[in-house]
Design a protein around this nucleic acid. Structure first.
Length: 272
DNA sequence: GATAATGTTCGATC
DNA sequence: AGATCGAACATTAT
């Protein structure tokens, strides 16, 4: 569910509250969301102190003082929430009781998300994160996108979604970025002109930054770390707007939906 | 009941 | 190697 801006929003909500807290108890209500056994998770987390909250792409990273880190992939419907009473109790999967009476909840309706332990040395972490390319908001990630685009024939939308090229862009922002960059989603990546690649780089940075400022997009399930919806939905220009009028000034086009890699893509044929 | 949903991954196939 | 496709995971909402 959450893409880079949503995970960054959660990170910013958690950061003022988690570092310095000790994990007192670990309650696992659905073991299938763990990459390890519940017993191993309890052993690793109980008594550990949270040092930092980081993010890479769509992955949230809780660094512990024990030279371990807890990686959280929210996938489609995962939520990481601070404090009780904010999650639908039916979908609670893991509860961490922290010092000072604070609770960190992992809720996930579809239970596709995953919690994973890894060594927090750079080496161990980068191995656990090895399937991902550089973060989409880093200069390195933007450079990786342009480099991959020059040598691959795959449709540009598919390249934006490829987490091994750059990490963090999902189905909503891929459509939004291409619309802002005025590039048709089915264009072969290696056919993009230099001018189009420049627009793509700018659009990626601008759309992701604006979405973070608005605290993410709540299309259906996303909640921030404090349980509120994000506000970027009001700024979406194409996603979910099939059949509606294009919002670009002076454009009379209608948004169409096509399917790429079994997922919906939205764009305005008159803008590209 | 069919369909689609902000994601990832694995296997088959070309 | 690169690319595509389908299925799987699991559950709700329309």
């Amino acid at each position: 569910m959450p893409e880079l801006p949503e995970v960054e929003t959660i990170r910013r909500d958690l950061l003022p509250h988690l570092p310095g807290r000790r994990v007192e108890t670990v309650r696992v209500l659905r073991a299938s969301v763990l990459e390890c056994s519940p017993r191993r998770l309890r052993a690793a987390l109980t008594g550990a102190v949270i040092r930092d909250v980081r993010r890479h792409g769509k992955v949230l990273i809780l660094d512990l003082d024990s030279s371990l880190s807890l990686l959280v992939h929210l996938r489609m419907t995962g939520q990481l929430l601070l404090g009780a009473g904010v999650a639908d109790p039916r979908f609670l999967r893991v509860v961490l009781q922290l010092s000072g009476g604070l609770r960190l909840l992992y809720a996930d309706c579809r239970a596709l998300g995953r919690l994973e332990l890894c060594g927090s040395s750079d080496l161990a972490c980068s191995r656990a994160l090895g399937r991902f390319g550089p973060d989409a908001l880093d200069e390195e990630g933007l450079a990786a996108l342009l480099a991959a685009a020059r040598r691959r024939r795959t449709p540009i939308k598919c390249l934006l979604l490829d987490q091994s090229v750059l990490a963090g862009i999902g189905n909503i922002y891929a459509s939004e970025i291409l619309h802002v960059a005025r590039i048709a989603p089915d264009r072969p990546a290696d056919a993009l002109t230099r001018a189009e690649l420049n627009r793509l780089r700018r659009a990626t940075r601008n759309v992701l930054s604006a979405a973070i400022e608005a605290r993410g997009t709540t299309f259906s399930d996303f909640r921030t770390g404090t349980g509120e919806p994000g506000r970027y939905g009001a700024q979406l220009r194409v996603y979910g707007r099939e059949g509606e009028r294009c919002l670009r000034r002076g454009c009379r086009g209608t948004i169409v939906r096509l399917v790429q890699q079994q997922r919906s893509t939205f764009f305005c044929p008159d803008c590209v």
